[in-house]
Design a protein around this nucleic acid. Sequence first.
DNA 1: CGTGAGTTTGACCGTTTGGTCAAATCACAT
DNA 2: ATGTGATTTGACCAAACGGTCAAACTCACG
Lengths: 202, 202
Amino acid sequence: MPKDRTPTRIQKKNRAAILEASLNVFSANGFRGATVDQIASEAGLSKPNLLYYFPSKVDMHNALLAQLMDTWLDPLREMDEDGEPLTEIMAYVRRKLQMSRDFPRESRLFANEIVQGAPRIHDALNHDLKTLVDEKTKLLERWMADGKIARVHPYHLLFSVWSLTQHYADFDVQVRAILGDEDPFDGADPFLETLYLRLLTP
Amino acid sequence: MPKDRTPTRIQKKNRAAILEASLNVFSANGFRGATVDQIASEAGLSKPNLLYYFPSKVDMHNALLAQLMDTWLDPLREMDEDGEPLTEIMAYVRRKLQMSRDFPRESRLFANEIVQGAPRIHDALNHDLKTLVDEKTKLLERWMADGKIARVHPYHLLFSVWSLTQHYADFDVQVRAILGDEDPFDGADPFLETLYLRLLTP
DNA sequence: CGTGAGTTTGACCGTTTGGTCAAATCACAT
DNA sequence: ATGTGATTTGACCAAACGGTCAAACTCACG
């Protein structure tokens, strides 16, 4: 196992390659569906060499999820209580949609984990996510009370943003089966704009 | 392997038990994550006995998906071109949400399959689903042209229904982590009602 | 160059997996 | 009751799996 002093250039390169390969394999097959050999081959390393950097399969998975959880919540974190309410929410939706476009593998990694009952991130869900959501929910309720946006159930409003945006990453094959050559996001962007404008304009 | 003459009472009972057990295990773990032993034990059969009724793991999975695909598309099929447009769409949304409530395991089976690239149902997606969607899409466009409902991208309108309703089944753990004791569907129902009313009222 | 830490690997191990098979048991029509 | 086909099972197998280990190689630095 490599020392956790300042990493050498080789450690940096290989760790990055492994995380990249892990992301590919885990997001496409789920945790149990992914094999260490597959990750090793995708990373261009021998299996023992791979396990030299991450002692086990779960370690790779954990490293990915830990790294992901933060970036995943960022778009919501950035929703600013001092901004114009409707603008802030629309911007949040746009950021979230952008994440589905830019990080579809990360989205599917997450989806795989949650569909199967989130056995490995239950705690993060009930703590990190719950805390952030409750904070932002209060903000949404204040905006509603002030008549800045229409009154809707704030939790379900957030659910709608998550599901509508992540759908384009998670259900990509289905979306493309319907749309054919058309770029999903070309249509999604104005559609969601319209949807939330009509839903939330007081 | 049992003859495919008229099934005996034992065949009926065991086939049903196996499909029930398969649904539990596949929906909770995905195809690769599910093991034959697990299904056998859940069905209360020995492994060889299970394989006497379904010759392989893929056969069980296929049987489930084939059976599912039809019921899954039914809510959309029922959308009636002779009905009142807005009412028809709202009823479709309600039926779809009801399916998430009544058949969450089926929804997760589907989700698992699609998130992982739908390797086993690619054809059904590009044919059965695509055909039905294109037919109903024409109907939606006619309603829009007639000014009965607001103009939005019809494909993305359908995507929104799918994602918003299935989210409550597929991301159940996450939803419950946020809502706590509150019944997800108590809030979902009026939320979606409001959302589609505001989106589609001309 | 030499040397020690960092890196890589072939060979291997125990377990789990999907699946087989012959033999035993059971259900039921005659 | 009995014979025949349907059902059930313990024992087994080959492949795939996650992971180990000692030995070999490579790199950076004095």
